[in-house]
Every structure is written in structure tokens, then in C-alpha cells.
């Protein structure tokens, strides 16, 4: 091991629209009304971490649509994965996915989306900060997590300290593609699907959906055929990740990591975790298809993904 400064830091010199500390999420506290949070595209965060030898859920930075600029206070290895946000190192283009050495004083900058929406930056050992309820996941709405523990996004002057040192990085086994138009998202069908009429179900899985501009870390609205459900006023109940809820206007909302913990709209089911990760990279206007899936199929694909990081 080369002896490097313990806890090498990056200084935030410019922020874009949204850059957040995110990890695998906050668990075991949802009965207290605390949501799960965590990286929306957990697959890309996982690869960025894998490049540095971190656990896949280690805390990194979720950079939404770019604009972030960081200066290295010491030489260290970093890795990025996920969306191509035109990342540069001292002005020289970087691969959208890969590890690299940043020298003291160099600037890592993200520009704007060329493919996908969210890039993930991993630091050796993850971002070093005080977790709240077991996680660093930033949930602005709940004023929880992040560097300050109160849900703040990164701001100019913040310092990102690495929890460890490494003296190299891995190479990606294959390139990671961002979802293109007409990507297929697997939807684990739920019991309430029986309350939707046949024409609605046919439309749900055969017609094309479009990602709406009303999309954030809580949920993503899709526009397309109106879906009709016979379930009337429902009593609020717990909501799983990726839940595809259908309010009375018939346009589904897919509930993501920062969703409220309970809610009362009927659901077609829930996107698989891999499909949630894909959806997180779809800009408004992207078209997509929903494909019915089972817990068994979704689990197999999920475990395969985890296996790639072993």
C-alpha cells in the first residue's frame, strides 16, 4: 500500500441541480414513518463501488444531470458509473464508467447528460460521515442523512472525505448501457391487479408509456393509456419499493426510494429493483414498456446482479 493521506478529501467547488450522498438505504425504521432512501440507480452505485473494492452499498455521490465540480485536496483513486454526464478531469474527458487517479489540485467536473440522468461517484471505502439511523442516505423531505445529517444536498465548500485508501482500481468487465427508448421494465404483478379491468391490463403491458416531467426521488409519473381499477377508497397501507400505484386519473406513479411509507392507491404491482434502477436513468419523454414478471424471476435477476460483485 502506498501511504496516502488518511481520509483524502474532495472539495465541492460548484454544485449542479442536485448532488446527494446516497448509500444502499435506511432500513428497519419504516414503521416510524422513515423512508428507505438510498441510490435510485443502485446498480450504478454498486459498479462504482466495485471498481474501488467497496461493498456495493457503500455511500457515494448521486449526481443528477451534472453541474458538480470537485477539487482534490490530495491524490486518490475515484470511480464513476451510471449516466454519461460529460465528466472531465482537469478538462480531459473521462469514461462514463471507470476508475481513475485524481492528483492533488485536479478538478473533477460533471457537465450535462449525454446518456442517462444520474451518475454515481465512489470514494475509497465510501464517503466518511456520521450515519443517521444506520445510513448516510440523504432524504431532503425528511431532513435526514447526508453530510450534515439533516438531509442537505451537497453545497459549495463541503468536503467529501474518503473512509479508506486504495492504491488502484478494477476494470469493468463490460460496458454499462443506459436505457434507451422502448426499454422494458419488469413489473412484479401484485394481488390488486385482479381489480383492474381486462382492457386496462392489456394496455398496461402492450402499449407504450412515457416518463413524465413530474419525476423525482419520491416517484416517477408515467403517461399513456388510462388504467381503470374497481377498488374504491382504500385504507392506507405500507408501500414497497417500485410500487406502481394508479390514482383515479389512471396514470401510474412509480414510487421510488424517497416515497412516503404508507399510501392508499391501488397498485398493479411493483417494478423489480433492477427495473427501478433503469427507470432512474430515464429522462422525461423517454418511452418504455412494462413487462409482467414474478417474484421468482425478479429474485433470480437480482441475485445474479449481486453475484457479479462478489
Amino acid at each position: 500500500m502506498h501511504a496516502k493521506t488518511e481520509g483524502a478529501a474532495l472539495l465541492v467547488e460548484r454544485t449542479g441541480p442536485l448532488a446527494l450522498v446516497e448509500d444502499g438505504g435506511r432500513f428497519g425504521v419504516r414503521h416510524l414513518g422513515v423512508t428507505q432512501g438510498g441510490a435510485l440507480d443502485w446498480v450504478s452505485l454498486g459498479w462504482a463501488n466495485w471498481l474501488l473494492g467497496n461493498p456495493p452499498e457503500a455511500a457515494g455521490i448521486e449526481i443528477t444531470v451534472g453541474g458538480l465540480s470537485l477539487r482534490a485536496e490530495a491524490t486518490q483513486w475515484l470511480a464513476i458509473a451510471g449516466a454519461d454526464l460529460g465528466a472531465t478531469l482537469d478538462g480531459q474527458p473521462l469514461d462514463a464508467c471507470g476508475g481513475f487517479l485524481i492528483e492533488k489540485g485536479q478538478v473533477l467536473a460533471f457537465d450535462q447528460p449525454h446518456a442517462g440522468l444520474r451518475a454515481y461517484l465512489a470514494l475509497p471505502g465510501g464517503v466518511d460521515a456520521e450515519p443517521f439511523m444506520g445510513s448516510l442516505a440523504t432524504v431532503a423531505r425528511e431532513q435526514l442523512g447526508g453530510l450534515d445529517g439533516h438531509g442537505s444536498a451537497l453545497k459549495v465548500g463541503d468536503r467529501l472525505v474518503a473512509a479508506a485508501n486504495v492504491d488502484g482500481c478494477r476494470t469493468l468487465p463490460a460496458s454499462l448501457a443506459m436505457p434507451a427508448d422502448d426499454s422494458v421494465l419488469e413489473l412484479v404483478t401484485g394481488a390488486q391487479i385482479a381489480h383492474f379491468d381486462g382492457a386496462s391490463l392489456f394496455a398496461a403491458f402492450n402499449e407504450t408509456w412515457q416518463v413524465d416531467t413530474r419525476a423525482d426521488r419520491m416517484g416517477v409519473r408515467l403517461t399513456g393509456p388510462a388504467l381503470r381499477c374497481g377498488l374504491g377508497g382504500m385504507v392506507s397501507e405500507g408501500i414497497p419499493l417500485g410500487a406502481v400505484q394508479v390514482p383515479p386519473d389512471g396514470q401510474p406513479i412509480i414510487l421510488l426510494n424517497d416515497r412516503q411509507t404508507i399510501g392508499g392507491y391501488p397498485r398493479l404491482g411493483a417494478l423489480s429493483p433492477l427495473a427501478c434502477a433503469k427507470l432512474a436513468q430515464c429522462a422525461p419523454g423517454t418511452t418504455l414498456k412494462l413487462s409482467p414478471s414474478t417474484p421468482h424471476q425478479a429474485r433470480r435477476a437480482y441475485l445474479k446482479q449481486l453475484g457479479e460483485w462478489q
Binding site: F27, G28, V29, R30, H31, Q36, V235, S236, E237, G238, I239, P240, T261, I262, P295, H296, R299, Y302, L303, L306
Partner: peptide
């Protein structure tokens, strides 16, 4: 058990998929 969310009439059980199949 990953998370258990009791509500008025239901309990949502979120279990560890790496340990249990459905």
C-alpha cells in the same frame, strides 16, 4: 426481516431476498 410496516388493517413485510425466497 428488513422492514415491517403495520398500518390500519395490514402489515407490509419486507424480507431479505438473499435469505428467503417467497
Amino acid at each position: 426481516l428488513v422492514d415491517l410496516v403495520p398500518s390500519y388493517t395490514t402489515l407490509l413485510v419486507h424480507y431479505d431476498i438473499a435469505r428467503l425466497d417467497q
